[in-house]
């Protein structure tokens, strides 16, 4: 390949990425603008709260429980190398609340909710249900996107809070049952070490990750191609984009919150 052709290919790729970022940004702004403008679809919002939040609790809880337990084992084993086994409660707490809680919940939501939203909306698109919505004087952005994005924005921070608590409990259970920690001391150390801003940052991350997860599901669903292959591509693309954007947003938010 000649240098000119290589440059042209590189240019096309960069332009394509920039166009994609532009489309997603415009879609996000459009969704946000519709959140504050009537009509509002309460039933769809309630249904989204249930599917994004309540029905995600088992997977979030189990993920957090096992992660908290594994974290306690790792910190104990690692800390033993320089006689710092006692820091298990503090590190489990800070690790779960600041990082692992929000990130793991975000990724679980991307796997469970983003894929489901993308597949559902993409199927609606290929079976002309989106066109039918329009002919029935219903804006797809208001009826499909806004309830899901708003529900995720509200309910994912709650899931993160639940995940943080269960994760800390997982560490507590392992530490007190197998590593010989005193239960009361473990809980006191955890409570003393955590600061209010650790929890606030965790919830803010949860809101951001929830927004990204729901938005990617809706965006890729709405842009789905034809047929089963189109639905499959939309679903795969939505999960990939949501996972990458969640990890990127986590890096940015961690930098903003804790780099000073």
């Amino acid at each position: 390949m000649s240098p000119a052709a290589l440059l042209a290919a590189l240019g096309r790729t960069v332009l394509s990425i920039l166009a994609g970022i532009g489309r997603v940004t415009l879609y996000a702004l459009d969704a946000l603008s519709h959140i504050v403008r009537p009509p509002f679809y309460g039933r769809e919002f309630g249904h989204a709260l249930l599917t994004v939040g309540w029905l995600s609790l088992p997977v979030v809880g189990l993920t957090a429980l096992f992660t908290g337990g594994a974290l306690a084992l790792q910190i104990y084993a690692g800390g033993a190398r320089f006689n710092a086994e006692a820091v298990v409660p503090q590190i489990v707490a800070i690790g779960m609340v600041r990082e692992l809680g929000p990130v793991l919940v975000g990724l679980m939501i991307a796997a469970r909710v983003t894929s489901s939203i993308a597949a559902e909306i993409a199927t609606m698109k290929v079976t002309e249900q989106i066109d039918a919505l329009v002919t029935l004087s219903t804006h797809p952005m208001k009826y499909l996107t806004v309830p899901r994005v708003l529900a995720a924005l509200i309910v994912v921070p709650m899931l993160v809070a639940v995940g943080d608590v269960i994760g800390i409990f997982g560490g507590y259970a392992v530490a007190t049952q197998t590593l010989g920690f005193n239960p009361a001391t473990y809980l006191k150390n955890t409570a003393d070490f955590l600061e209010p801003f650790d929890i606030i940052s965790s919830l803010i991350k949860g809101a951001a990750f929830g927004f990204i997860a729901a938005l990617m599901g809706c965006y890729f669903g709405m842009r789905s191609g034809r047929g089963a292959q189109g639905v499959g591509r939309a679903t795969k693309g939505s999960v990939q984009a949501a996972a990458i954007l969640i990890l990127a947003a986590n890096f940015v938010l961690t930098g903003v919150f804790f780099s000073a």
Partner: peptide, 13 residues
């Protein structure tokens, strides 16, 4: 759109 009704090919229910 309030003046229109449409039956889609696959019903689109």
């Amino acid at each position: 759109l309030a003046r229109f009704g449409m039956l889609f090919q696959g019903a689109a229910l």
